[in-house]
């Protein structure tokens, strides 16, 4: 009994450490994005006006649709974790899978946007001046984060099916969810600064 109590406390404290560490890691990551966002806003406001001459036209409708997809995935991952807490494994797996699919849809949407920018507007990372530098760097970084998130959630899902987590001990799943929400929030900012202002 005492050993069980101690083990539980051990779990709680490990969880506490890992969640705190992960939050701080996300703060660092946020600073990384913020720095590039600062760079973009700086160049945008000190240059010869925005959009700079020759900048391509972004597809607002597509990006809006894509945003809905990504926000939807924020909801699905939330349902996934809630179901885990309520010990409903199948629902957890279903919602996680839905999140992964939505993530892939988002990336495909990004791909379509990049492709049409490239073929129609002849825009590129290095060849489109400060537009290319800021747009492709930031959305590319975010896309990589989404990609990493898809891998991450897939691994978590596999681990969960193999019984790595219990309904009481599931720190890994919490961290995965946190990460996904983080990527979601970053997109809100990127969408606003590139498509809305």
């Amino acid at each position: 009994m005492r050993a069980a109590l101690a083990a539980d406390q051990f779990y709680q404290e490990t969880r506490d450490l890992r969640v705190t560490g992960f939050l701080l890691f996300m703060v660092s990551d946020l600073v990384l994005f913020s720095s590039f966002i600062f760079a973009y806003l700086y160049l945008r406001n000190t240059g010869q006006g925005w959009p700079p001459p020759g900048a391509p036209h972004l597809n607002l409708a597509l990006a809006a649709l894509n945003s809905v997809v990504l926000f939807g995935s924020g909801a699905t991952i939330h349902f996934a974790l809630e179901n885990w807490k309520h010990e409903k494994f199948m629902k957890f797996a279903g919602w996680t899978l839905a999140t992964i699919v939505l993530g892939i849809m988002f990336l495909s949407g990004q791909g379509i946007e990049y492709y049409s920018l490239y073929t129609v507007d002849h825009a590129s990372w290095a060849g489109s001046g400060i537009f290319g530098a800021s747009f492709f760097t930031l959305t590319g970084m975010h896309g990589l984060h989404v990609f990493a998130g898809i891998i991450y959630l897939t691994v978590l899902l596999l681990q969960a099916t193999q019984g790595k987590y219990t309904f009481k001990h599931y720190t890994g799943l919490t961290l995965g969810t946190l990460y996904w929400h983080f990527v979601d929030v970053i997109w809100v900012v990127l969408f606003s600064i590139f498509y809305l202002i």
Binding site: S28, L32, A39
Partner: peptide, 23 residues
């Protein structure tokens, strides 16, 4: 934690500009 990450961004941008011509 915060400052070094900002430097990382500046360095990455310098690297990209030097290696890939991203302005």
């Amino acid at each position: 934690m915060i400052a070094t990450t900002a430097l990382a961004a500046a360095l990455a941008a310098l690297f990209m500009e030097r290696q890939f011509g991203v302005p």
